[in-house]
Write a protein that binds this DNA or RNA. Structure first.
Lengths: 227, 227
DNA sequence: TAAATAGTGTCTGTGAGACACTATACA
DNA sequence: TGTATAGTGTCTCACAGACACTATTTA
């Protein structure tokens, strides 16, 4: 191993391990947001929970690697990856005991109905301690996602599905931002999203009380692009 | 070369070339913003203008590599690097003819008086065509810097110096955002920056007309942190 | 009819943008 | 006094936050 590295240093330019780690979110039911994590099958941190991640191969694009991580580590079907974006790049040298590894963190929004044989799904606001520096990545990703909610159609539509009740929008916003929004203000926000339409339909979400207005997306789903 | 790569594929985990490319900005006189670029001494793109960049070495942190690029490629003194931050990570496989290379782009704000023997300085809004995909990186970085102006103290203070005239603030904002701000509105913005104080001093910037109010920073310079 | 839930109207404050008007300099 | 530049006051708009009040449902 160190022999190979020495050879590298002499014959080839410096190279680095680059991992792509994915914060994959999904709404099993509208309003709830869960993150896909998996127990590591291999050292380091074998048996510990971690974000799905892979080492970037030569010539691979970030979103390809992210998809590979989701398919390989969570068991997700690639067609269920509806939107992807960049969070940040992390460089703490001690983050991986195998040696210094750069980590490019991406977020991914999966279809609510996506199956993932290898994944454990935990609520975004109750993520248990993870391996590496993945706790920090999740925290940063949550911030990014909260900023994009109701602005980025690809992300938001993936988390709401084709239509959703207004009260589910309140829950969704609370999960991502950590604060419960005022219903009146959120309704104004929804009215300002151009791809959203308020329908005449009403939907019962709670056992009692007034049924909620149903909002629906105009267009078929689109993917969000980000490197 | 390809022999070494084959050895890698067999004996070592996948590794990638990672370059760190820096958009280094500096204000030689308050209000003007220039970017440091240099002619490439080595292939590829030998003789072409490009951003300073280096290949990330094993265990090196991004900001270390960025500093190394500034010192080695522009001839900047490390103490003149006042603030650093992340722009984004670029992954287009064709960006480097030597083969696929990931590029982590950082911005850096240098002291206005920094010397840089190897650098050519061009106005941020008139950057000539550059090698690789550096045009795109500059465009993205300009957007990031425009968003941070008057919000990120480290960046802004590096570009203004210890004190500056209000009319210079107008020029600075115009260079970064591409639009000339309304002087009245900008003065309100300045008044809301907590680390800034309006002084009684007046300073002549133009040949004719009323002298401008001078604003000064409270505290000694601080570095901006970003991975 | 009470309790639970959802929706609306409106007030406040903030920040950006626009623009007219005033102030201060030099020639 | 005219021109160039800088500074101020104020109006509008958009948006977020807060909150009281109304509406609709089940038990």
């Amino acid at each position: 191993m160190s022999y190979v590295l020495t050879v590298n240093a002499v014959l080839a330019p410096p190279m680095s391990h680059v991992s792509v780690d994915v914060v994959a979110v999904r709404a099993p039911r509208p309003g709830q947001v869960v993150v896909g994590i998996a127990r590591r099958q291999l050292p380091p941190f074998r048996g510990r929970l971690a974000l799905p991640g892979v080492l970037l191969t030569r010539g691979e694009r970030l979103r390809e690697a992210a998809t590979r991580a989701l398919v390989g580590k969570l068991g997700v079907d690639a067609v269920d990856v509806l939107a992807l974006g960049q969070v940040a790049t992390f460089d703490e040298p001690s983050r991986d005991p195998r040696g210094p590894t750069l980590s490019v963190a991406l977020w991914a929004a999966l279809s609510g109905t996506a199956s993932a044989a290898l994944a454990e799904w935990v609520p975004l606001d109750e993520v248990p301690p993870l391996a590496f520096d993945h706790d920090r990545i999740v925290a940063d990703a949550r911030q990014v996602l909260a900023d994009k909610l109701w602005r980025d159609v690809g992300l938001t539509r993936a988390l709401t599905g084709r239509s959703f009740a207004a009260s589910e929008a309140v829950e969704l916003t609370e999960t991502l931002t950590g604060r419960r929004p005022d219903a009146a203000n959120l309704n104004k926000t929804l009215a300002n999203v151009s791809a959203l339409r308020r329908t005449e339909e009403r939907r019962r979400v709670q056992q009692t009380g007034r049924p909620a207005v149903v909002w629906a997306w105009d267009e078929p789903p689109e993917s969000t692009t980000a490197g």
